[in-house]
Structures are given as C-alpha cells and as structure tokens.
Design a protein around this nucleic acid. Structure first.
Lengths: 184, 184
DNA sequence: ACCTGAACACCGTTCAAGT
DNA sequence: ACCTGAACACCGTTCAAGT
C-alpha cells in the first residue's frame, strides 16, 4: 500500500480537526499513518511545507464555519452583523478579516490580493448565512419547505472560493510573507 | 544577586528583539540569565505565563514601529494610507488591526474592547507619523528646525497607550481568548 | 526563599541502510 | 522509489535535594 502526499495531508487535516494544531506533530502524524517519523521526509522537505499544503484551506473552512455558527446562534445575527459591518461599526469582523487574510497569504497571495480575498470570503459567509437564517424563519413559520442539509450548501460555496485561492497559490513562497510578520 | 520577575521578562524581551520568537525558549532564557532551566519555574508557572507578562506589549511596539517605518519610506505614505483607510479602501490596515486586536486580547481585554484598542493604536500611529512626515518635509525645505529624536516621541506615545492597556489587563485569563481561536 | 541537577517524555530533522 | 532505525540536538516541565 503506497502512500501519497494527499494521504499525508488528509491525515494531517484529520488531526487538525479532531485534536488541534498542538497535537499535529510529525511523529504523531507518522504514527497515525503507520510509518516511521523519518519516512515523512521523503514526501515533504519539512513540517512547514506539509502545513502549506492543507493548512490555510483548513483554517479558512474552520474559521468561516465558526462564524456561521455564531451568526446562526443569534436571531437575525447575520443581518445584524452585515449592517454593522457595512456601517464600519463592527468590532469582531476586522479581526476575522485579518485571520482570513493571513490564511490567504499563507496560500501564496500577496497582501493586497489576500485582503481582497478575505473580504470576498466574509461577503459570502454573511450573505449565505443571512439567506439561510431568513429561510429558517419561513420554515419554522410553516410557510416554506425545509431545505436539505444547508451546511452542505455552505461548504460547497466555501470550497469554490478556496479552490479559486488555490489557483492563485504559489507554493514556492508560501511562508515568506508570514515569516516577514512580527514574532507571534 | 537576586533575580526578579522583571529581570526575567526583560531578558525575554531582549531575546525577542534581537533573535525573534523562535529563539525564545525556556532553556535559552535560563542560559542567558545564568540559571538552570528548572529555576525559571519558581518565577513563572509556565512559558505562557511568562510570555503573557511582556509579549503583547512587545508585539504592539514592534508592529507599530514597522508600520511607521513603512509609512515613512513612501512620500506622503501616512497621509495616503490614512485617506484610503478612512474611505474603507485599505488593504493592509485591517490585517494590522487584527494583529493589534490579538495582542490586546492577549493582554486580557475582551474582543470588543480589543477591537477598539486596535483602532486607537492605528489612529495614533497614522496621526503621529503623518505629523512627523510633514514636519520632515518642512525641515528638508529649510523652513523648520529639526526636531530631536522623533522616534523617541513616537515611542513615548505608544508606551502611553500600552500602559493604558496594561491597566485594563486581567492577567488571569490572559490566554483564554487566544486559545478559543482556531488552530494557527 | 530561591535555585540546582537530573530526569521524563517529548520535539524536528538527518541519513545510512534496507527492500 | 519508498521507507526503517537509530541517532543528534534540541524542547517544556517536574521535583527531590541543596543552600
């Protein structure tokens, strides 16, 4: 049974999802793949290169998913945040924008494109969630039939956007921009 | 020669300044202080607690300093960025806002206060730098006497702001908010 | 009270050697 | 081509013991 880069990235993503960044070590990843730690270094030059493959994509999905959850947990949350954001009054959205831009930079975009990509993502999340939320209200009022798996639809649109990002991704200088940032 | 918490924080800050976050390890810090690694754990419960003392302050100063440098390196840079930021057209500023907010959160503010603090800091950096930049132009035109050490003035204002942050800082739940963020 | 010394359970990475 | 096994030079943290 051969092992390909995609399998390694998939396993890394699984660890990231279920246990978090702190548990994503080369040795643990190797253990999960029934491989010796050194073996990973045939597939990837180092840990940074491995994270560069799937890290930013995963973080965008995770972050957007959590924003969606937060919006859905308040009545008219999406509409409310959209309005305050449009009015420049939002407190948390700029922070999220920054994190999304970071992920886009890790994907290889320059910081100008990354900022635009971050806004695109937020527009999508706010728009899609506002639509889903109002739809839910019509359903609970009995005026509309229930839509099947709204999460799936949300994820699909998100993947569309991250695929677009991946096209613009230049894997070579993936971490350059991040390294240029001040020590975290 | 006794060793106090402040000495440890000062040594940590020096390493941070001269070598970066990657080189700030407990063992290296102990070496620099002519102490054994274990000895640090009498002063601080763990590395996080140590970083919580001086980390956010250092990061704010470093980041704002770099923003100032970037603005000064372009003619009318501060004025230009101020205008584009006010018009909501800025690409990089939201990213910087996010990083500043992160630091404020690490200082112990909730995310709402942190966002406000980040904006306050940016207003100061843009305002102070724009002033300094226009003053430089008058000086180089021979129409004004050179001011002594403009960097010192910039740093003083910055320290004023971070002191204000420190007052609002609740050291107990310093990292809670950061931990709640998605894996980086 | 303040610190040492030694240990524990980990890291990322390299590299000869195997198949 | 793909991986093992063992090593190297590190980590953060704990804790008995010293002074």
């Amino acid at each position: 049974v051969q092992l390909h880069r995609d399998d390694v990235v998939a396993a890394a993503t699984a660890i990231l999802d279920n246990y978090g960044m702190a548990d994503l070590t080369m040795r643990r990843l190797a253990r999960e793949l029934d491989i010796s730690p050194g073996g990973l270094y045939w597939h990837f030059a180092n840990k940074q290169q491995l994270l560069g493959q799937g890290g930013w994509r995963h973080r965008i999905h995770a972050l957007c998913g959590r924003v969606r959850d937060a919006l859905l947990s308040h009545t008219d949350g999406a509409e409310l945040v959209s309005a305050s954001f449009a009015a420049g009054q939002s407190s948390r959205v700029p922070e999220v924008l920054g994190l999304l831009a970071d992920a886009a930079i890790e994907a290889g975009l320059d910081s100008e494109q990354a900022a635009l990509a971050a806004r695109t993502l937020i527009y999508y999340v706010l728009g899609a969630t506002a639509d889903e939320q109002s739809r839910r209200q019509w359903v609970s009022a009995g005026a509309l039939a229930d839509a099947a798996a709204p999460v799936a639809g949300f994820e699909f649109g998100l993947r569309l956007l991250t695929d677009g990002l991946a096209v613009r991704s230049t894997p070579d200088r993936v971490f350059d921009a991040l390294v240029a940032l001040p020590p975290a």
